[in-house]
Computed example of a mutant assay.
Amino acid sequence: MDAEHVAGELESVVLTEEQILTRVAALAAALAEEYAGRTPVLVGVLGGAATFTVDLARAYPGQVEIAWMAIKSYSTRNRASGSVRLLKDLDLDIAGRDVIIIDTVIDTGLTMNWLIANLRQRGPASVAVCALMKKPDTPDFGETPAYVGCDVPAGLIVGYGLDFRGHYRNLRCAAVLSPVHARG
């Protein structure tokens, strides 16, 4: 779906389809340089990061393995609480492996910090984070390397796999949903 199909529901487009593909290619190249000669495990966070994970894997110029986790983050009054529930765990052992957590957008960083801690308990050789977008005021992840495509404004980001109440995942761009539609 193109942005013009839902233009009245969007506040602004933050990344066009072309900009997304350019940033995905740049992130894949940076990761390939860092992990040259190794086969990292891309851990995609379902469901929002499915599109990004697959596109990143396709752009990666070497071998990667893809694994999936699904988690549910809880919030109170539209603020992340830091409470996370694991809905789907990895189907493979990551002990001794290079793990890259893939997420489309990092907001507060609370869920990502939970994922990093959870995966580190499993004995990987390394853990890194790769996100296409990062919202303002997101904290660093300590000594965990983070590869980020770009900073985006605050607001509810939809498109490129990200949804609001099940809608907009198939939007080819990434956009801020208008506040009127974000309440609805």
Results as ranks from 00 to 15, higher is better:
36 A>M: 00
148 V>N: 11
32 A>T: 06
45 V>I: 11
108 T>C: 04
157 I>A: 09
136 P>G: 07
170 N>W: 08
83 S>V: 13
151 D>Y: 12
119 L>G: 03
160 Y>W: 12
164 F>E: 07
89 D>W: 12
149 G>N: 09
31 L>S: 08
34 E>P: 02
108 T>W: 04
107 D>Y: 06
150 C>N: 13
98 D>C: 11
103 D>M: 08
33 E>T: 07
69 M>N: 05
38 R>A: 04
127 V>H: 02
31 L>V: 07
158 V>R: 04
80 A>L: 15
67 A>Y: 08
129 V>I: 15
114 W>G: 00
154 A>I: 08
136 P>C: 07
46 L>E: 01
49 A>S: 10
61 P>V: 07
106 I>Q: 01
44 G>F: 03
106 I>G: 01
156 L>S: 09
125 A>R: 15
102 I>N: 02
35 Y>M: 09
70 A>I: 11
93 D>P: 10
53 T>G: 04
84 V>N: 07
149 G>P: 10
73 S>G: 14
103 D>W: 04
42 L>T: 00
37 G>Q: 07
153 P>K: 14
84 V>C: 11
113 N>C: 09
55 D>T: 07
113 N>L: 09
118 N>S: 05
31 L>E: 03
52 F>N: 01
155 G>D: 10
115 L>C: 09
147 Y>G: 08
116 I>K: 02
34 E>V: 06
155 G>I: 11
34 E>A: 09
85 R>H: 14
163 D>N: 14
48 G>N: 00
59 A>C: 10
72 K>A: 15
32 A>K: 08
157 I>D: 01
50 A>N: 00
43 V>P: 01
54 V>M: 10
167 H>F: 12
101 I>T: 04
132 L>R: 05
122 R>C: 03
47 G>M: 03
39 T>H: 04
36 A>V: 00
57 A>V: 08
147 Y>F: 15
52 F>I: 03
104 T>K: 05
114 W>Q: 00
63 Q>R: 09
34 E>N: 03
80 A>F: 12
84 V>Q: 05
173 C>S: 15
157 I>S: 02
151 D>I: 11
116 I>F: 04
139 P>S: 12
141 F>I: 09
85 R>W: 14
108 T>R: 05
30 A>P: 11
47 G>C: 00
116 I>H: 01
169 R>M: 05
52 F>S: 01
109 G>W: 01
166 G>S: 11
132 L>F: 12
45 V>F: 01
147 Y>Q: 10
50 A>R: 00
33 E>D: 07
88 K>L: 15
121 Q>C: 03
89 D>R: 12
130 C>N: 09
119 L>M: 07
